[in-house]
Simulated scan of single mutants.
Amino acid sequence: MGYVKKAVLLTMLAMIAGLAPTMSVADEKVEGKVVSTNLTLCHPRPTGGGCEGILTLQTSAAGTTQPVSFKVIADTIIRRGQSYLVLPQTQDNSVVVTFVTEKGQKVARSIDVIGAAQ
């Protein structure tokens, strides 16, 4: 019986290791001004989320500014303080986006509005 358990465990570990290259190691964060939103679907939920689309930020790093786009999925929580927002309400605001990279694409996990853009 011990042999069967070890074989099952090794098989499960091999499967997890096979999935690892498609998964992100850790969440990353970036701050910037929302310069555009493209809403493709929205069914707001009382607990946040429900909207899908693309969010584009203008970020500054090392003295240069550049646009960065994020895929927003239905499970992405968008909020300002304790209030939940829908994607278009982030337009022209300063935000912090927590994201992962999946299959080469930045996918937002959460979007926090930290203030009006200056």
Rank of each mutant, 00 (worst) to 15 (best):
I54T: 02
I54Y: 04
L10G: 09
I54R: 03
K71P: 03
Q91K: 04
S110C: 15
T98F: 12
E31H: 08
A117E: 14
V25D: 06
L85F: 05
V100D: 11
G50S: 08
V113M: 12
D92P: 00
S36Y: 00
L39S: 07
E31Y: 02
T76C: 09
I114H: 05
I73Y: 01
R80T: 07
L39R: 04
R45Y: 14
S110G: 14
Q105H: 07
I78R: 06
V34A: 11
A62T: 00
D112T: 14
E102H: 01
P46Y: 13
T64C: 03
V100S: 11
L87H: 01
A14D: 05
D75I: 12
A117Q: 03
V25A: 10
V97F: 08
V35K: 05
K71S: 14
A26N: 08
G32C: 11
L13Y: 08
V95T: 00
V97K: 00
L19K: 05
C51S: 13
Q58C: 09
T47L: 15
P88R: 05
G49P: 13
N93E: 13
K5F: 15
P46F: 15
R109P: 13
A116K: 15
Q105E: 15
P67V: 08
V8M: 10
R45H: 11
T37P: 02
K106C: 00
Y3R: 14
S69M: 10
D75P: 01
F99T: 00
K29C: 11
G63N: 03
M15E: 12
S24M: 08
S69G: 02
I54S: 01
I114G: 08
R80H: 11
V97L: 05
E31F: 00
T90S: 13
M15P: 00
P46R: 15
A61L: 12
V30H: 04
M1W: 02
L9D: 12
L13R: 09
S24F: 03
Y3F: 13
T59H: 07
T90C: 15
P21G: 10
K5W: 14
T40W: 02
H43R: 03
G115E: 08
K29Y: 13
I77W: 03
M1D: 07
T56W: 04
G53C: 09
N38P: 01
L55T: 06
T64Y: 10
G63S: 09
K103H: 10
A62C: 02
G53N: 04
S94F: 01
K106T: 06
S83V: 01
Q105G: 09
D92A: 12
A108H: 06
P67L: 12
P88I: 00
G18F: 04
M23K: 05
D27Y: 06
T101R: 02
V34C: 12
D92H: 07
Q89H: 03
I114M: 14
G63E: 09
R80E: 13
E102M: 11
S94C: 04
N93L: 15
T22P: 02
T11H: 07
I78G: 13
E102T: 14
S94G: 04
Q89I: 13
A26V: 10
F99L: 10
D27W: 10
A20L: 07
M23C: 07
L39N: 03
T59R: 06
S24N: 08
G81D: 09
K106S: 08
S83P: 00
